[in-house]
Amino acid sequence: MMVPSMTRSELKAACLALLDRAAVEHPAGHQGKMAARYVLRAGSNERIGLMFEKSEKTKAYLWIERRFAHGLVSRDIDHRCYPANELYKAAKEGEKPAYGRHAGLKAMRDLANADLVRFEIVRLEQLKTILSILASPSA
């Protein structure tokens, strides 16, 4: 018997509950209905900034600084890299340069201008895996 998958809003609610248990709110705070900002303590005792897109209009995206994502990009989780050197580029010739990332990242000094990876979470187990790897002593 197949277990029905979660709706986007159910998945996001479950992800937020998991993040609330595993991490603390980022000093920049959460961003209303758009983004939840967190700090996770790595197994190496480093602080890892995380931002989760909680808007109903977007997929469940988790943003992490690329230097912490090295053990995650080879997993079965779709991701996209956002290099810092591509910030503030015009989308088209003659247009004004734009930030090029989720605006909720701008308030996070640790993530705003860093090389980032954005993971698309489609199953709660994927987020559990990410948090487990980040919190491991080798992270």
Rank of each mutant, 00 (worst) to 15 (best):
A17S: 15
Q126A: 02
K106E: 08
F52Y: 11
L50K: 00
E46K: 12
E10W: 00
G71E: 13
Y38F: 15
C15M: 11
L131N: 02
P137H: 05
G94Y: 01
L19C: 01
G32K: 10
H102E: 08
R37E: 03
A22M: 10
V24H: 12
Y61Q: 01
P83W: 01
R21A: 11
A139H: 10
D20H: 10
D110S: 14
T7I: 00
A14P: 07
L50Y: 01
P27D: 01
H79T: 01
D110T: 07
E56K: 14
L116G: 04
E25M: 15
G43N: 06
A107L: 11
D115K: 06
V73Y: 05
M1K: 11
P97G: 02
P83E: 07
L72F: 03
G29V: 03
L18Y: 01
A13Q: 15
C15W: 00
A60G: 00
F119H: 02
S55M: 00
A35F: 08
A35H: 09
A23T: 14
N113F: 14
G32I: 07
R47W: 08
K89R: 15
L116I: 03
M51F: 00
V3Q: 12
L131E: 03
P97A: 04
E46S: 14
S55Q: 04
K128Q: 13
W63C: 06
L111W: 00
E25L: 09
G94D: 12
E46C: 09
G49Y: 01
K96Y: 11
K89A: 07
D20S: 06
I121D: 00
K92C: 07
M6N: 09
I133A: 09
V73Q: 12
K106F: 12
E86Q: 13
K59F: 09
F68I: 04
L40N: 03
K54R: 15
L124V: 11
N45V: 10
V3I: 13
R123C: 06
G71F: 08
A35E: 04
L124Y: 02
H102M: 05
R118V: 13
K57N: 09
E95D: 15
R66L: 12
S138M: 06
A135Q: 15
F52V: 01
K12G: 05
L18Q: 03
R41Q: 10
Y38W: 07
V122H: 05
F68G: 04
E125P: 03
I121Y: 01
N85K: 14
I133L: 11
M6L: 15
V117R: 04
A22K: 13
V39E: 09
A107D: 15
I48Y: 11
L111G: 02
S44D: 13
G100F: 05
P4M: 10
L72K: 06
A17T: 14
Y61K: 00
A107R: 11
M108Q: 08
L105G: 15
Y61S: 02
G43M: 04
Q31Y: 13
P4S: 12
R101A: 09
I64E: 06
L50I: 07
T58G: 02
G49F: 05
N85W: 14
K92R: 14
R80D: 02
D78N: 10
